[in-house]
């Protein structure tokens, strides 16, 4: 297809739509099932399902602005978000869909880059993009492109993770530095540059999660710490499990540049978004082994033991570096920088 811009006609269902679907989406993504262009993907699950296994399904919308950022773009983000949601239920991701809402005027070459990036991320995570959709909306309505994605995975027999399994005494682990994604986006939006550039941590974490199960760690709970950051995850899980949590400020892994940027904007890295961070709850006796497994994985090099589950009130307490203690609560509304 000649270089150009997305026009409303690309969403009309006519020749232009067909051309876009064939020459851009199908050709770039290259999945066999997708290329059949049926109304629904028809999937053979016989090799994946065993007695006692369960299906996991998730859906998410991706609206990031800007579409491309250091460390990723909306295409990669949609795959990683879907994969990580599945991985957080201990599922092995298998299939996903992507519905693209394109804004009139989007450069077709840019779209091709985003779709290619989606394909690369999917290949890395081992998830197949088996069905999709494209719509075009008038200029000014979709910030370039939005993606609605859904994913299906299979939870092998014997795996049961969730807030109901969190126990007093459980160790709380995270696989690396906090707030990289949120801060990368915020600095880009605000036109602030750092001596050390901050890259989004956007990454598929199913391999990281599988690595724990492969060595037989009894994982109690997993949570993908995206919007609201690790802080929001802990506050939610305290309520859902009915247990208290203690976090050690000193143990929280935060990049120097992220810490500096947060300081200047008045934000707490604990509440800044991630796109490649998994919080894991597991027995304290297995924490060292789990840490070693994660640190040997490319997405877990900065893994840290950040706290533990305590009996008592379902609140999150932070032990500060200076030896005091305070409660961690969800911030209200948007994260806003302070004014003076």
């Amino acid at each position: 297809m000649a270089a150009g811009l997305i026009r409303l006609a690309h969403g009309s269902g006519g020749l232009l739509t067909q051309e876009l679907v064939h020459s851009l989406f199908v050709r770039t993504l290259g999945d066999e099932e997708l290329s059949r262009l049926l109304d629904a993907a028809v999937l053979d699950h016989s090799s994946a399902l065993q007695a006692g296994s369960r299906l996991a399904m998730t859906t998410d919308a991706y609206v990031v602005d800007p579409l491309e950022f250091p460390g990723g773009d909306i295409g990669k983000l949609a795959v990683c978000g879907t994969v990580n949601d599945l991985a957080a239920t201990a599922a092995q991701p298998l299939w996903m869909s992507a519905a693209w809402i394109l804004e009139e005027g989007l450069e077709i070459e840019r779209l091709r880059r985003l779709v290619f990036s989606m394909k690369e991320a999917a290949a890395e995570a081992g998830i197949r993009l088996v069905t999709g959709d494209t719509k075009v909306v008038p200029h000014g309505l979709a910030g370039g492109a939005y993606i609605g994605a859904a994913g299906v995975g299979i939870i092998p027999p014997g795996r049961d993770v969730g807030p109901h399994r969190i126990q007093p005494g459980d160790a709380i682990l995270v696989n690396g530095t906090l707030g990289d994604h949120g801060m990368a986006i915020m600095l880009l939006r605000e036109g602030i540059s750092m001596d050390t550039p901050i890259e989004s941590d956007c990454a598929p974490l199913n391999g990281l999660v599988e690595a724990l199960f492969e060595v037989g760690i009894s994982v109690h709970c997993l949570r993908d710490a995206t919007r609201g950051g690790v802080g929001a995850v802990l506050c939610e899980l305290a309520l859902q499990s009915g247990l208290g949590m203690i976090v050690h400020e000193e143990a929280l892994p935060v990049r120097e540049a992220v810490a500096a940027a947060c300081e200047i904007l008045g934000l707490d890295p604990l509440f800044v978004a991630n796109e490649g961070k998994m919080v894991a709850f597991l027995p304290a006796s297995e924490a060292e082994r789990a840490l070693a497994v994660w640190r040997a994985h490319p997405y877990g090099r900065g893994a840290a033991l950040i706290g533990e589950v305590a009996p008592g009130k379902p609140i999150v307490r932070l032990r500060t570096t200076i030896g005091s203690e305070r409660q961690v609560r969800l911030p209200a509304g948007e994260l806003l920088p302070r004014i003076c």
Partner: peptide, 21 residues
Amino acid sequence: MTMLGGERGEVLGQYRSAEAC
């Protein structure tokens, strides 16, 4: 474009030292 220094974290650490507190 604003440039932010990279050594800020170390400087801050000094004012948050548990021992000094």
